[in-house]
Write a protein that binds this DNA or RNA. Structure first.
Length: 423
RNA sequence: GGCCCCUUCGUCUAGCGGUUAGGAUCCAUGGUUUUCAUCCAUGUUACAGGAGUUCGAGUCUCCUAGGGGUCACCA
């Protein structure tokens, strides 16, 4: 089982989506289930409705999940596991005050040493624990042997016992720490491979230690993805609003930091050859220009009717028209800004008013011309406007832009709508 | 500051002891196109720096610099 574990605390960005994408692809390759676990343990930071927005985006990108679980719903399991550890003397109550811990941390900092909890409460005599009225947290005893795990990107990762401390698993209010909850949930959900952000790598030995102490046998293999440096500048929501196709965004996110057989591909193609071990271990930069290029290619691959839907129509000939513009335009938003003016009321510049008016009348009385050349010649003859001016006027009348270069191509797709456009 | 990871054209990458250091994108130029774009061709641009190992180093080792991550009762 693979999982995507977002916290509903902010807009999903490209880094989050990349994680989801990779987990999904691997699940497909291994023929395992892909689930979503909403990590909603922080009540203050949770954003109302964000979970549904995340789920909606996953669906939009075609990342089908078999199940959604909410971490807070597993609290009773987390508590039971913590209790189990306590009974087996693998965890202990810690009565240290925040002030005491902060002081210790500060001291360590001044000495330029790494702070680690000093295990002050680890071996408290029972009577001090049982009758103690002070608030306490629960800590798991630190591991006594090094923890090694396999990471598809980093290779074998090793944490020595000096790197680890007895860390908190239950907060003072007896809610589980996120680390503990995740470790337990991954066990409960029978997770086999975890692709996640690099920032979790220091948590990994802790989570493995928790499962070891709970006598969980299954080995989980990891892939800690290096950061996309400018990820925070790009939320999925804004990329979508800016006219990027989900298929193109997915394409680019799989391409980034990777070596792929082609540059342009679909998600199902990626499933055939994707190899997480090829992802480079160095942090990378997201390049909007490259995404644009890829988006353009995906737009070209769309069939005409589908393409027309992205610009607000459901008509193959509008799609064909859009493809004319696609030669130098990369997003559906830009495409819209070209297509919409065609059917909108045009503002005619002062110097062309006369010509446009004359053109309008002439066209209204004209018969249908199949070829632009014939159409143009007819108008030239009928109106006696000089060619350059005529083309400008015609261009603004049809497209809303005076300097439309591709007027001939545009006409081809527009000729059946002439009446509607110029009225 | 401690610990971990990383460093090849602006960007994303190939390279795995002997290459004119390759590709993609961007940029520039030329051709095509009545014009722009497409398309085609051509071109500029990279091994972070230093020391070592070796007949030979982008590739192995060490040092320096730079980047990323982490050190929470955040996820």
């Amino acid at each position: 089982m693979l999982r995507f574990a977002p916290s509903p605390t902010g807009d999903m960005n490209i880094e989050d989506l990349r994680i989801a994408l990779f987990n999904y692809i691997i699940a497909k390759q291994k023929n395992e289930n892909f689930i979503v676990r909403i990590e909603d343990t922080n009540k203050e930071k949770n954003i109302e409705g964000e979970d549904q927005r995340i789920l909606g985006l996953l669906e939009l990108f075609g990342l089908e999940y078999s199940q959604v679980v909410y971490q807070t719903q597993n609290f009773r399991f987390h508590s039971a596991m913590a209790l189990d550890l306590l009974h087996n003397k693998k965890a202990f109550n810690c009565f240290c005050s925040d002030e005491y811990l902060e002081k210790k941390q500060k001291e360590a900092q001044e000495e330029q040493k790494t702070y680690r909890y000093d295990d002050a409460c680890m071996n408290l005599p029972p009577e001090l624990v049982i009758d103690n009225e002070h608030p306490f947290r629960v800590r798991i005893k630190r591991p006594t042997s090094p923890i090694v795990f396999k990471d598809y990107i980093r290779g074998e990762v090793n944490f020595s016992i000096e790197d680890m401390e007895s860390f908190t698993i239950l907060n003072m209010d007896k809610t589980p720490t996120q680390n503990f909850a995740s470790a337990v949930d991954d066990m409960l959900n029978d997770i086999s491979i975890i692709v996640r952000k690099e920032e979790y790598i220091e948590d990994t030995p802790k989570q493995i230690h928790i499962r070891n102490e709970l006598n969980y046998q299954k080995e989980i293999v990891y892939a800690h993805l290096p950061a996309i440096k400018n990820a925070k500048d790009f939320t999925i929501k804004t990329l979508l609003e800016d006219g990027f196709l989900p298929a193109a965004i997915s394409n680019y996110l799989v391409l980034l930091g990777n070596e792929t057989p082609q540059e342009i591909f679909t998600l199902s193609e990626a499933i055939d050859w994707f190899n997480i071990e090829k992802i480079a271990p160095s942090s990378i930069e997201f390049d909007l220009e490259k995404l644009k290029k890829i988006n353009q290619e995906h737009l070209k691959m769309l069939d005409n009717k589908e393409l027309s839907r992205y610009v607000g129509f459901a008509d193959a000939s509008i799609g064909a028209l859009a493809k004319v513009y696609l030669q130098d335009i990369a997003t559906t938003k830009e495409l819209r800004s070209k297509i919409e003016p065609i059917f909108a009321k045009k503002t005619i510049p002062q110097e062309l008013q006369k010509e446009v008016k004359l053109l309008k009348e002439t066209i209204n009385q004209a018969t249908h011309f199949e070829e632009f050349e014939d159409f143009k010649n007819y108008l030239l003859k009928k109106t006696a406007i000089e060619e350059k001016k005529l083309l400008e006027s015609l261009s603004i009348l049809l497209t809303g832009f005076k300097d439309e270069k591709n007027i001939q191509e545009v006409y081809k797709h527009l000729k059946n709508y002439l009446g509607e456009i110029i009225k």
